[in-house]
Amino acid sequence: MVFIWLLPATFAAIGTEACAAEEAANKAGNKITDSRKSGYDFMSASTQALQNDDSQNPAMLWVKDGEALWGREAGKDKKSCASCHGAAPKSMRGVAARYPAIEKKTRRPINLQQRINLCQKDHQHAAPFAPETQEMLRIESYVGMQSRGLAITPPRDARLAAFTQKGKVQFEQRMGQLDLSCADCHDNHAGKKLGGATIPEAHPTAYPLYRLEWQSLGSVERRLRNCMSGVRAEPYPYGAPEFVELELYLAARAAGMKLETPGVRP
């Protein structure tokens, strides 16, 4: 009887405090079993091979362009990203792994693309890249790749909690004509088939990534918009606060999982 009562409690704990528990366990040197799977684990070996080797990974075309953008001067002060941040492999290491994060002035969470836009506006005095443009994806993938192999690490910032919670509510909120929530597929039916495709667990481990379906690179918000139109809901616009909250929850849910950016997915 006690045992039966314990089970739901355990699941609830995994849902909300997985990151803290796992970090503590890792520090103590006790590996707790982590059954979470990246989308990578659901792919066929031949698609995995595209991600495994940079010389075959089409996403690297965007990363290389991003590297050139990093050093390109822009705005009236003719500053590049490198003017302030120096070499990205050093200065950007770990940055993508901790976004979304709270922005100082507005005290609201922003994602990595929005962070890049703020730098463009405030420091370069340049026109910001619009979301999902090729230029934005190039610079985001270049910054993102500097965190490859690092664990997703949401900031320990109490101000994030309310936003992350809102994201969780969104994740579980049914929407669209098909009346499905994210959780319906990605929590309750992950690993099962939808048509010919395996439903992944919705961990944002490799964005921006090259999706074979897109034949291009895309951000996590493009993927979220896809899912929303898939359940026949009206997708939020790029950069909507709802997306940033959802990204926060996804990051909390995937805390401790390794970043693969730039990934490949079917």
Partner: peptide, 13 residues
């Protein structure tokens, strides 16, 4: 050499 079961027909190695 080709996978017998293909995830996505847009890019088959």
């Amino acid at each position: 050499d080709i996978a017998e079961l293909i995830d996505n027909g847009n890019a088959v190695p």
